[in-house]
Amino acid sequence: MLRIEYLTKTFGKKTAVNDLSLHIAPGEIYGFIGHNGAGKTTTLKSVVGILQFDAGEVKIGGVSLRQDPIACKKMLAYIPDNPDIYEFMTGRRYLNFIADVFGVDEKTRRDRIREYADRFELAGDLEQPVSAYSHGMKQKLAIIAAWMHEPRLIVMDEPFVGLDPKASHLLKGMMREVCDGGGAIFFSTHVLEVAEKLCDKVAIIKQGSLVRSGSMDEVRGDDSLEEVFLELEAEE
C-alpha cells in the first residue's frame, strides 16, 4: 500500500530524513516512533505530498507520488499533529468541502457525517464555526474528515493527542476497521503503550535514520517496546 524507498529530505544543511525505506502492506497498522525532532513529522509530510523530498521514492498503491501526486492523494487521508482547520467554516461546511474535493456523493456524505459525528458526539456542534471548537473537537473533526472518502491509506501524526479516552478508544477501533477492510494506517506516536497494543508493525527513527523496523515481536523481542526504545536512544 505504501512503499517508501531511500527517502531523503534536507532543510538547508540539516538532513531531517536520511535514506529511509519502509513498506506498509494492506491490512497493517504501522507505528512510527522517535523522540522529538527525530524526523517523524517530516517523513509523514513527505509521504502525503506536503513536503517536496530531495531524493528517494514514495509509492502509494503502486503509484509514484512524484509522477502523479493527485492520484496518490486521492487514495490517502492525512491528520496532522495540530489540526489547524479553517476557522472561518462551520464543522459541517468543512466536512462538505472535503467531501466535494474527493467527489463523495450527497447521500454517502450525509450518511458518513451522521455516522461519525454521532460516534464522536460532535453532531450537535457541526453548525458551530470551527473557531469555537476546542483542540479535541478539532481533532475529532479532522478524523471525521479523513474518514469521509474511505481512504485506502490513512497517515496520522500523533492522532491521540487531545482526544478524550472515549474518542481515543473509538479511533483505535476505527483504525482496525480500516485495516480489516484492506486499508492501511501509518501513524506516529509518543505513547509506546498504545503502539505496543495497536500496531502490527513498528519503525523507530533516530536523527532522521531508521534504526529498527519490523513486526512488533521482531522489534521488541523479549523486552517491552519502551525498553527497546530507551536502549536504542541511549546508543550513540
Partner: peptide, 14 residues
C-alpha cells in the same frame, strides 16, 4: 448545541 441540518449536504465540483 444545534440540530443537524442535513439538507446542507450539496455536492459541488472541485
Amino acid at each position: 448545541k444545534t440540530r443537524s441540518r442535513q439538507k446542507n449536504e450539496k455536492r459541488y465540483s472541485v
